[in-house]
Design a protein around this nucleic acid. Sequence first.
DNA 1: GGGCAAAAAAGTGTCAACACTATTGTGGGG
DNA 2: CCCCACAATAGTGTTGACACTTTTTTGCCC
Lengths: 223, 223
Amino acid sequence: MERQSKTLVDTVFQGIFDLLIAGEIPLGGVVNEALLAERFKVSRGPVREAVKALQGRGLITKEPYLKARVVDLSVADMVQIFQLRESVEGMAVRLATRAMPDEALDQLLAEFADADRKQKRPALDVHVRIAEGCGNGRIQSLLCDELYYLLRLYRARSGDTPGRRDDAFAEHWQILRAMKARDADLAESLMRSHIARATESLQELLDSEGGAEASPASGQKSA
Amino acid sequence: MERQSKTLVDTVFQGIFDLLIAGEIPLGGVVNEALLAERFKVSRGPVREAVKALQGRGLITKEPYLKARVVDLSVADMVQIFQLRESVEGMAVRLATRAMPDEALDQLLAEFADADRKQKRPALDVHVRIAEGCGNGRIQSLLCDELYYLLRLYRARSGDTPGRRDDAFAEHWQILRAMKARDADLAESLMRSHIARATESLQELLDSEGGAEASPASGQKSA
DNA sequence: GGGCAAAAAAGTGTCAACACTATTGTGGGG
DNA sequence: CCCCACAATAGTGTTGACACTTTTTTGCCC
């Protein structure tokens, strides 16, 4: 009974997303409106709109009278997402290198060094912080509100690419140093290489998988 | 009366979008569900979902119990969109340079040369064709289904930046030549410069405008 | 016994009415 | 005369019922 100034649609939206992250609905699984309505103790209306919003965000695919399905993130889809991230995060770090004030950068470096000591990897967080600091709301929204949802969804299932933890850590460190030196070109180049390397890991995984799984499931039409 | 296998929501979605393009709803104007429902001869339900989808696509902003408003695309917003396009279209042309078959490239070049003779500028179309040819559905969807909608919306009002027609034409030509030569690095570099130049025009416009208009309106939360 | 057609079931799309919230207009007090 | 509280209004949020489409099941014919 706490403040529910947020509309039910938003609550349900978050709820369904949590279900996806938790894996309660399998990756290619169907999304039944009535069951969700029952589960969240609301009518089907808010559920429909929430599903529509999820669809607009690319997490759920759906065509007119067919059941809605959770997007099944194939490795091929992930490669495409990483290609997109390579370009966008490159631009993000370029902009952030110019836009972020010294204090914010210093704090980020300090936190990162701290996490290093504790062996806790901040991982995604560095990317998020850079996206937040780039000063471009559109880019930030794309990275933080859309692509990272898909990333989380993928990682919650497949587990991220192994053997890249330590490499990624070193690469993050390099990027932060370039930002501190206000070298936007270098920072962008490093970020792109950083993500490109992860993409290559995925690509190898895709090639090794062979043509076993062929799931297009990319790009949805709604108009 | 014709085949309306498409759901009403999709029809209304397209209808509202057309209204925005046509300028029947001014850029910061309110979007009244009941009026739209009346206009399209449907109930408010489909309108609500369509508006929600538009919101998910960033064309309409809305918070819980407040009126929905058409996003008012300030020049500052456009600069942000162009920065995003610079990175993504750069990647798109890089991928397309590798992915597009010779025949498709030749045809594109031929069409372009033809348009040159007729003085009809294909303009946006070149970007669309490259996006379609990049082989990455996610990037194609972002460029063609999201950003170009906003571009069209902006150009339908403000008219695009003057004095760049001829320059843009020459730059498109250069890009196509680089693609034909299968020089992905050059093609990406040219595309980025191409868009960056347009961004600079916008930036100058923004600076000359001064702080007259301050409309943030970028980035919407829905969860 | 296998395959096709019709009917039943399940699920999505649409609608109209009701509940809630924010805004606007109005009246009284300072 | 200005400002604040209160009622009236407009508009959004939610709901349950009904219509349409797809899928599955069942029964019939070959």
